[in-house]
Structures are given as structure tokens and as C-alpha cells.
Design a protein around this nucleic acid. Sequence first.
DNA 1: CGTGCTGTTGAGGACGATCAATGACGGTGG
DNA 2: CCACCGTCATTGATCGTCCTCAACAGCACG
Lengths: 235, 235
Amino acid sequence: MNNDELEVLVQFVKHQKRVSAGADINRAAESPKYSTLVLEGIACSYKRLAGGGRQIYSFHYPGDFCDLYRYVLPERDKTIAVQALSDCSVATVDYSDIEQLLAGRPKLAQALWRASVMEASILRQRLSNARRGSALQRVADLLCEQLARHEAIGVCSRHVPLSQVDIADAAGLSIVHVNRTIQTLRNLNVLGKTRQAIEVIDRKELGRIAQFNGRYLNMPQLVSNWTVHMEEAEK
Amino acid sequence: MNNDELEVLVQFVKHQKRVSAGADINRAAESPKYSTLVLEGIACSYKRLAGGGRQIYSFHYPGDFCDLYRYVLPERDKTIAVQALSDCSVATVDYSDIEQLLAGRPKLAQALWRASVMEASILRQRLSNARRGSALQRVADLLCEQLARHEAIGVCSRHVPLSQVDIADAAGLSIVHVNRTIQTLRNLNVLGKTRQAIEVIDRKELGRIAQFNGRYLNMPQLVSNWTVHMEEAEK
DNA sequence: CGTGCTGTTGAGGACGATCAATGACGGTGG
DNA sequence: CCACCGTCATTGATCGTCCTCAACAGCACG
């Protein structure tokens, strides 16, 4: 996707708004006529489970559409909602505008398609871990993914701004066990020892533990990267 | 996707061939210049694990492209391969042809996009089951998915033509435990007692056990259904 | 100063992995 | 036709990982 395509998209962004951490960006039952784009912060797609638990499916970073599947699938899965994990700033694009845009721009259409395929890639990876991997691997992999996606949008922080609860809900582990796993990682000098917030110290080792192969994530060129353009356009 | 779009696609199908059960349709390292379409039989996307194990990600039924992600992603994940689970008949479509086709046909492009989103949907569902949920739920859900997909292509058999090994590799369970789980299902009179092959007797109960909500699978109108047209076109 | 959320720690128990061995079946070659 | 082999299905026993319940500490919030 080149900048020309981008600029076009930017013109159709509407209704920018802020959402504070923990609040829902999309409720499960809603069927809005627009898609939502994350501009700032981190959001997640999740589903409420029978017991009240939360299953996190995917994370949405700045530059990601977080509910494009609703646009594509005629009968949406109405049980999936989107929640802000940190304070977020989001914008919306009307379906009708998307439709018009895609009509004459095969490259833009393919870019969005690609984003969906990437999401599937990440899901495959997570599924792979859900199975064979130990809790250590799963948590490590999750952290690697977060770092990779941070870098993809130009932020090279060693901080992972997720709570242990978030990690547990995404990895499919109990909070207690996530906590113990993180302590193990701390004892291995892979994570920092600060209680609040997770800080990655030895990233190489983290990748080794996770058997993380970032190749399935080749996002820098793909999904994100237009955030900057977005932000500029709004000023 | 309407029939007009279909007919166009059919014209570009090349190199039909047969693959016998257990053989690879795509090897992991290959980077072919075409995409493969399943015409008959059941295939799966899988990855070889360190210990020699096999992790099955998704199943491909007649009418599915099984490696379209290779076309969309510039840097493919070269560790995923496709294998025939039963005797299959497959055809290929060259990338160059796909490109030409999509250029002027936004609806066709969207149909393929939709297929990717659906695959992500299925992966989400499987992920959901991966760690939450007992082995009983996981196996039951897997069987429900197979039945649903069979129906999606017009086959209403109560037969699931997968071996227990296949189920184990897809559900992320050991073969031994899958076997015991299936026996439990048999004792609940949900599955037939024949040793060879799996026969679903009480489908309602199976769905209840799996807490299966087929709504995430709305494929009848989407992915498949063009198989019949394909077959006719080849004669 | 309570209330709530996140993080931490302990103990017990269940589920499923692993190892090992056997039976049933189909195919292949002698 | 039968012996041999490989794959799939089955069963038993042991063991480890991770869940559950329960309680408490730190911190931010009103």
C-alpha cells in the first residue's frame, strides 16, 4: 500500500474519539455501520465466556482496524467485542465509504485482505502455542508478539503495557499461573523485577524460550505504519 | 459471489491432479507460483513440530483454496504445509491469473477476502477451545465443525472421515487421550460403537457438549458451493 | 479510610501427557 | 495362501503441569 492509497483512506475517517482503559470500543451485540480504526493505545478483541471469564483473541495496535470482519462477513459473529486495554484514541470509517473506496482501488482492497490473513497467521501461531507449549513458552511468545508489534509501529520500548490478567486471558492460563510464570522469567533475568508493569531485559533469551520466529509477523510493511500519516492528517 | 464471477474463475483452473491420502499437496519450503484449490476429499494445513509431531491448523474442504495466504503475504510463512487427509483431487490457479482476475472484479476479491476472514473465525473458535474446555469439549467441537463443513458443501453424512490421529493433531491432544475421549462419547451414545471410522449418532447432544454455536460458521453461502460448477466445467 | 484492582503466595487435586504393550486390519511380497 | 509389516485403535499405569480455592499485600481511587 503506497501513500496515495493512504491519503484517500484518511479523508474518510470520521468521529475520532477517546476511550479509557477497560472500556468497550464495540459491544458484542452491536452491528454498527462503520468500522473502527485504532489510532493510539492498545485494544483487544475478546469474548465473554460462560463463567464470566474473558478470552482475548487478538490485540489491536495503532493502525489496525479492529472490527473489519464485521464488514466482510454478512452474518457477523455477534459474540465478539472490542475493549481498550490502555487509554485509546479511535476513529471510524463508514461502511459505505469503504465500499466506494475499494471499488476502484484493488491495491487498497488487497491491503485489507492482507491484514486479515495476517490476523489468521497470528491466530495460528497462538493456537500452536496453546497446544504443545508450556506456560513458559506461551507467555514468552505472547510477550515477543507484543514487542514485535510495538516495533512494527516504530515504538521500540521494552515495556509491555499489559496486566497479568490480560496475559492470562490471552494465553488461556489462570492468573495465578501466569504470575508464577512471570516470576520464573524474572528469575531467569529475562524480565525486570519491578512489580508494576512488565519490562523485557533479555530479549534474545525470551525469543529462545518462546521459540519465537518473527517471520510470521511481517507487519512493518503491511498493516501499520500509516498511523503517522493519520495523525498528521488530523491536525 | 454470483455465478458469473465463478465461471470466470473456473476458466483459469489448470493442472488438475489426484493426491492420495497422507501425501503432501504442498511442501513446507515450496514457493509455487500458483494457488491450490481442493476439488474432492479433505486436506489440512499443518506444521511439523520439533519432536516430529504434526500440528493441524485448518481443514480444507472441496471449494477451498488451501494456500491462498501464500499469494497475499509477500514473505510467506514457509513452515506450513498442506497434506491430503483422504484421497483428494486438486487443481491449481496461477498467481498471474488471479491477479488479472481480481483487478476488475471487486466482488471476487471480496469473496476471497471473506474466505480468509472465515478461516480466522475458525481459528479463533479453535483457539477458544484450545485450553479452556475439557478434552471432551474440544473433540466434540472439532466433530461439530466437520459436520457443519460437510453440510456446507451439500454432504449430509454423519460420518467423520478423520482418523483419531488427525483429531489428536488438530485438537492438540495426545492420541491416547483422544481415544479415551471418543470412548466416553460412545458410552454417552453420541458416537456409534464401530471401531473403524467415527459415526455421529446424537448430533444435538454432541453440539450441547461442545457448546457449539455454528453461527461463526456461515459458509454455505460463502466459501464452498462452487465445487459443483467446477466439476461440471471439467467434463 | 474503606473499596477495588493487581500482584503474590500456599496447598490440594484434576486432567491430560507419556511410556509401554497388545489387538485389529489391510497391504505387500514370498 | 500365508507370513510379515505398518498403521490405527485400545488399554493400563505413572507422573507432571496447571487449575482451583483461599488468603493477603500494595497501590490508586473515591
